[in-house]
Design a protein around this nucleic acid. Sequence first.
RNA 1: GGUUCCGUGGCCGAGUGGCUAGGCAGAGGUCUGCAAAACCUUCCACAGCAGUUCGAAUCUGCUCGGAACCUCCA
Length: 503
Amino acid sequence: MSELKVYNSLTREKEIFNPITHGLVGLYVCGPTVSGESHLGHARPYITFDIVYRWLMHSGYKVRYVRNITDAGHFEEEGRAAEDKISKKAILEQLEPMELVQKYTNLFHWAMHKLNNLDPTIEPTATGHITEQISMIEKIIADGYGYEVNGSVYFDVAKYNTDFSKKDEPYGMLSGRVLDEMIATTRDLDNQTEKRNTADFALWKNAPPEHIMRWTSPWGMGFPGWHIECSAMSTKYLGSEFDIHGGGMDLLFPHHECEIAQSNVCNHKIPARYWIHNNMITINGKKMGKSYNNVITLTQLFSGDNPVLQQAYHPMVIRFFILQTHYRSTLDFSNEALQASEKGLKRLWEAYENLKKLSMISDHQSMVNTELDTKVNKLLNEFDEFMNDDFSTAKVLANMFELVPVINGIKDQHIAAGSISAETMELLKQNIQFFVEEILGLKSESETDNNKFDGVMQLLINMRKDARVKKDYATSDKIRNELQTLGIQLKDDKNGNISYVVN
RNA sequence: GGUUCCGUGGCCGAGUGGCUAGGCAGAGGUCUGCAAAACCUUCCACAGCAGUUCGAAUCUGCUCGGAACCUCCA
């Protein structure tokens, strides 16, 4: 099998993946801020890293997958209202902060399960790790890279940059920014007087009594800064140096850059070896995001309840839509694109269902069509290769679609069952099943997989068959057409069999 | 202004120096009681200009257009 290669944002190159400890992988992914509902844009990183997680496990690694829940509201920038997002909304909604956080955490988990994302192995919360964060800040201060002003603590970026540039680890090494240029071009913000430098960032923020979320600290009552939670939690659960750190590209700077600086001071190491970033989902060419006021929440997407949506989209359609694109490309949302995905997924899934029912009658080795047999084997064997090439789910799907006509052809007997060898048929069944369900994480759209329903359908199908034999087309068409209006499609195949699909 | 990236056929999207990705839509056909589905065939492409090369959508330069980040953000 080929070696796994991943694109590393840190080096801007595709690199062969080698874990720090043989057989084990530490994976940290920045999780949601549960002060609001998850939207389509949030679905992408979690699906992307679900694929990474699944593929690493398949590759034989024992993976610790840590994805945090940010439930301690990050404040806005200095100068704006001195209250964090969560406390602000809590007042508006007349809810306790914890109640609000719980609500959106539950909703997030619900959506993740709908999208068939596996649960991370550890899902730590920021509020559950206040002491770890405080310890880390104390260490940063002790080492001279943090300073306290009026109960808040800031990270001294300039000092860090000067000292660590000597080790070839300047501030900006991940995002390609040069500190001096940044200082020269940073916008003027109000109330920056506490900071020594505009590029400095908060480690701890003083909070007044009216601020709901606050904790005691060596510097008084307050709450942790923007980036420290990820450093504290990744260090705690994955160690001072771990394998993969993931998240959206928009977190590259400043979030991940600051994480590197903080962790490097505390642990004397760049925290992660491989930094993987997924690209954004756009809508009309613009990033989907709160600031753009163009978000479609996942609940809206699943229900169709948003003016820009022409219909509801099944969670599996969303997953398929995202997997058809490489994770580092932008993906533009439109109803047309989603509808195309819906149809494509349906076709793929039906072929998969057909494949499962194919019997293994291929003992006529003399009939094997070598050319077809070779082609099928090639397409199947490339699944591994494509996944190992920076998780190219789009290519895996393309190959699957090339196999669809082969599967359907055998089913419809356009292609003789013996055209491919028994071994190839077995590989076809195994690989398609494994990659569709276990790696890509697709599952049936229909919720009607039960024997009673199927029994009723078989009854109707048999009635239609009888009517057709009697040439009673009025009855046979009535059964077909009325089922159609219920969203159940009957399909006649060549040899008189009838199958059904629930739309 | 700085940093980074992108521009592929009607739409969505892979891709990389020579070998037509794929999906959706369109056209024609096979099958069918009719239809659907399926299957077969097929149209449409690499933003523009110049260069490197035997050969470029793929490398280089420039031009035009777009995006992300620089502020919470997946």
